[in-house]
C-alpha cells in the first residue's frame, strides 16, 4: 500500500450530501477484473454528457480546480455498496484524501486500505472550508497525518480523528494482510478450538 504522511494541496469542492458509491463509480463499470483505469469513470454520470463529452458545469471538469488532490465532499460520503472500486476510482483519478463531516463505514474501511485518507471535520469547519475554496480555487491546505492535523492557510490547525492502527498502517505503507498473517499461531489455535 502507498504511504501517506504529508500532503499539501488545493481542494475540489463537491457540495452534495450522501454521495453514494453508485455515483462515485456507476455499476456498469464494475465489470473490470483489475483495479486499474477506474479513475476515468469516477463520477461518470455527473462528469460526462450523454454523448460522452465532459459536462462543463461539473467540478471535475473545471480547470480552476484541476490537479487538486483533496476532494471536499458533502455530509455522509460513500454510502451504498461495498465496492472497493469507489476508492480505486478516487485514487485512480488522483485524490489522496477526502474531507467530509462523516463517512459510511464500509467506504471508510476501503479507503484506508488504499492509501486514501478520509478526514472528518465538524460542520462549522466544513462549511468554512467550502466557502474559502469556492471563493478561491487556489486555496491550499496541508495534511499532517502523524500529528493528525489539517492545517489551514490562516494558521488554524484542525485535528481530525483516525484510529491508531490505520494511522500506523498508512504512515508506514503496511498492509493489513501482512499484519493478520503475523498471527498464524493464534488463528491455528482458534481453528483447533472450533473443531
Amino acid at each position: 500500500m502507498a504511504k501517506f504522511t504529508y500532503l499539501k494541496s488545493r481542494l475540489m469542492p463537491l457540495k452534495i450530501n450522501d454521495i453514494d458509491t453508485d455515483q462515485i463509480i456507476p455499476a456498469r463499470f464494475l465489470k473490470a477484473i483489475d483495479k486499474n483505469g477506474m479513475g476515468a469513470n469516477l463520477f461518470a454520470d455527473w462528469r460526462y454528457e450523454s454523448d460522452g463529452n465532459p459536462n462543463k458545469e461539473f467540478v471535475l471538469n473545471k480547470t480552476q480546480y484541476s490537479g487538486a488532490k483533496i476532494l471536499l465532499a458533502g455530509d455522509n460520503f460513500g454510502c451504498g455498496s461495498s465496492r472497493e472500486h469507489a476508492p480505486w476510482a478516487l485514487t485512480g483519478f488522483g485524490f489522496s484524501a477526502v474531507i467530509s463531516t462523516s463517512f459510511a463505514d464500509i467506504f471508510k474501511n476501503n479507503a484506508l486500505k488504499n492509501g486514501l485518507l478520509p478526514i472528518i471535520v465538524d460542520p462549522i469547519v466544513h462549511k468554512a472550508i467550502f466557502t474559502m475554496v469556492e471563493n478561491d480555487p487556489n486555496y491550499e491546505v496541508e495534511i499532517d497525518l502523524a500529528s493528525q492535523l489539517l492545517k489551514l492557510p490562516d494558521g488554524k490547525n484542525i485535528s481530525f480523528p483516525i484510529n491508531e492502527f490505520s494511522k500506523t498502517c498508512l504512515l508506514n505503507g503496511v498492509d493489513e494482510l501482512g499484519y493478520i498473517m503475523g498471527f498464524e499461531k493464534e488463528i491455528s489455535d482458534f481453528e483447533t478450538r472450533l473443531n
Binding site: 486500505k113 498492509d175 493478520i180
Partner: peptide
C-alpha cells in the same frame, strides 16, 4: 459486507481485522 481487499484477507487467513 466487505471490500475486495478484505475478500483477499478472508481467502488468505479466514480472518478479518475489525473495529
Amino acid at each position: 459486507g466487505i471490500g475486495t481487499s478484505e475478500v483477499e484477507h478472508v481467502l488468505a487467513t479466514q480472518c478479518l481485522l475489525q473495529t
